[in-house]
Design a binder for these strands. Structure first.
Lengths: 153, 153
DNA sequence: AAATTAGTTGCAAATGATTTGCAATTGAGG
DNA sequence: CCTCAATTGCAAATCATTTGCAACTAATTT
């Protein structure tokens, strides 16, 4: 039995048409590879690496380099958010239009299960850190690691 | 004028002899390359990439692969802590013997200046996250990013 | 102090993630 | 259906990191 995620990703994913019109708006073409990539992302609640996306795609559907280029573009347009779980591979998650996609994950260090976390680093403390060091536009990158219930047995 | 760091790294670095005896204790050899690497680390308050260590070393002093192997070993012995600033290169910082080295950084996204942060993610919230998801041994990886005072001008 | 040996090193080749040059292809708009 | 800029596949290039292996050396033994 798979543990489900009780956050925003449980809700229906964005319509593909919503995504494509967003691309069109930026004068980007809706190509086969891109539609296929967006479909994969739409149906995955958790961040995927480029290789994972590649492996989900029917073989020959799209080149790995095309995926890398697509993800870069989508990130620049703010349509996906990039995450780093510290294992040397970038991961991407689709995000809603208004949403800034800021959230964190709890990752099992044994089986790589990923759970979305709603908690975030307290804003007041972050502001204090920014003020104390005279930094502007401070944000953070935060991920949690531990052993999931299944791996504890 | 360089902003100084007001935390534990301002204090005198560990003696080299302390470090080498720690290696000996683990039946590891004190070699030229290792002593040189430890010297570099001793004199740097902030995390260094393997390449940065390599570049600090007099040319020919030590092979890059040797540095990679040394850092892996030092990390396994708990003598250095590995950090990830999300730019695809691991960084290492020397840590005190008892110390678990857990702390965070504030990094300028324009000039890469690094400041050590004493604040940490609130333990109670982390415990709540662990409990809510039935995870054990939960820790976190956290780094802050922003624009430093110098780069704001 | 010389012999012994396990731990180390340099070098080159192998990996793995990501990027890039380029010629051929193809959406989108007219 | 034509035109053209955007996009793609493929191969080669980069970058960080790892690994095989024979030569080397610090630490221990004799």
């Amino acid at each position: 039995m798979k543990k489900s995620c009780q956050h925003h990703h449980d809700s229906a994913p964005q319509e593909l048409s919503t995504l494509t019109s967003r691309l069109r708006r930026e004068s980007r073409k809706i190509t086969g590879p891109r539609a296929a990539i967006l479909e994969i992302l739409r149906h995955h609640p958790h961040p995927l690496t480029n290789r994972e996306i590649f492996d989900e795609l029917p073989k020959g559907e799209c080149d790995l380099a095309t995926i890398y280029r697509a993800m870069q573009m989508l990130e620049k347009l703010g349509m996906v958010k990039r995450f780093d779980f510290g294992d040397g591979a970038a991961r991407y998650e689709l995000m809603g239009e208004g949403d800034d996609g800021h959230h964190h994950h709890l990752i099992c260090t044994r089986c790589d299960t990923v759970v979305e976390i709603e908690e975030c680093f307290p804003a007041e403390i972050e502001q204090r850190i920014a003020a104390k060091n005279n930094f502007k536009a401070v944000t953070h990158r935060l991920e949690f690691f531990g052993i999931c219930p299944a791996c504890q047995k």
